[in-house]
Design a protein around this nucleic acid. Sequence first.
DNA 1: TTGTTAATTAACATAGAAGATAATTAATTG
DNA 2: CAATTAATTATCTTCTATGTTAATTAACAA
Lengths: 104, 104
Amino acid sequence: MPQLPTTFAALGNATRLAIVERLLAEGELSAGALQVDKITPPAMSRHFKVLREAGILVQRVDAQRRLYSVKPEAVQEIGEWVLNFREFWTGSLDRLDAALKAEK
Amino acid sequence: MPQLPTTFAALGNATRLAIVERLLAEGELSAGALQVDKITPPAMSRHFKVLREAGILVQRVDAQRRLYSVKPEAVQEIGEWVLNFREFWTGSLDRLDAALKAEK
DNA sequence: TTGTTAATTAACATAGAAGATAATTAATTG
DNA sequence: CAATTAATTATCTTCTATGTTAATTAACAA
């Protein structure tokens, strides 16, 4: 997957990771709702673009609002990468693998 | 964990991700063994440094050689992050959570 | 239509990432 | 000791990331 480095890079910024975590915890939110004092709206807008282009966020338009949410596949992609190397960090996690496969 | 963005950033580079994947698949390897034609030794050396400082690799010295291997905790950290949001990508993965907890 | 709200795009500044070549350090071997 | 091997550090260059302010686009409301 040549997607993975891009996914990791997109999450490799504290502001963007915080955006993703809020969306994962609270569900769909508008750009404005995700706004934080520390960073200006244009800067936020660029972060959204990076996350969208990495395939991590989807945008939905509602009047002037832009509503963002996380694409489950993005999180899943990371989960699968970790599981690919599960033997490395014990083997007691083999059940996870089964669970993941059952879900497909 | 303020570690996570750093971890993701370190893996957000194709060369570094390839290094980590080789080490996960093949185990401990020397800097020389990880060398690829595309990139010069000094550039590789800097990548090792980034990965070390992110807490993803450990270095072991053997004569002139530097032997690298992956710290399991780094991979685990990512796995736990994914599991924290497991509800998001179904719920059929609750068993994973149990497995992870049992391991601690 | 005019003003307000929501977000993005434009243009610019600056810091950091990533690469190259050359030089250096350190350990091993002849 | 001199030469070789292994890897890193020094220096420099270039490109990209990230942030700012100002301007623009678009939808809604009075």
